[in-house]
Design a protein around this nucleic acid. Structure first.
Lengths: 107, 107
DNA sequence: CTCACTCATAACCCCCCGGTTATCGGTTAG
DNA sequence: CTAACCGATAACCGGGGGGTTATGAGTGAG
């Protein structure tokens, strides 16, 4: 079983891929050619990265004639945010428990 | 140059490593042996993972006799949270711009 | 002092992943 | 219709990363 966090973290672990996603978030709709210009890698590489991002639900594609436009789906970041806040939450709650314990000891 | 997000995403991209970090967040201080029991991999593998997490600032180690205790540092997740909210923010601002444009067109 | 225990490091292996070039299917321009 | 363009797929390659076993450094127990 591979969790949704796993897919997201793996998809965003690569710098090139993260840069592509970032660009789509900043500047909105982009064709593959436009993304390739700034990616620093070949067009097939960009296509592969877009495939991974699409599998992770981070982008959507739209065909328009012979071009393919991609756009970001930041909503897909939700599980990631959820996980991080959960981690921070666990830590906080353990801290609260300790504080609680200290208070009870104080009485 | 490798950004702090890069280190964090790469560190958390591996399921075994994420599980170790998660356990440290949930249950607090753990020795290497204790972590190894639940990790599903050998002790040297666990040590390597802990090394990566430590490099990323996600854990701290404390030597106590011949044992080494590790504890989570969820504060290190900050850049990750920052990045994700930034991505969502860009999207939101572009949305706001569009709304703004529509309002101006409406006049 | 010696032996057992805990963890880190070394040395090695294999597979996955990110890159490349070559090519193909689909689409539009001329 | 033909030729050029756009993007995805195929086939291949090299490096890195996660796994293992073996061993070493440091500490505590007896």
């Amino acid at each position: 079983m591979l969790s949704s966090q796993d897919v997201l973290f793996k998809a965003l672990a690569d710098p090139t891929r993260r840069a592509i996603f970032e660009r789509l978030c900043r500047n909105g709709d982009q064709t593959v050619a436009a993304l390739t210009v700034h990616a620093g890698v070949s067009q097939p590489a960009v296509s592969k990265h877009l495939g991974v991002l699409k599998q992770a639900g981070l982008v959507r594609d739209r065909h328009e004639g012979r071009q393919t436009h991609y756009c970001a789906q930041p909503r897909a970041l939700a599980p990631l945010i959820s996980w991080t806040s959960q981690m921070a939450g666990f830590w906080q709650s353990r801290f609260d428990d300790l504080e609680d314990l200290l208070k009870r000891m104080d009485q």
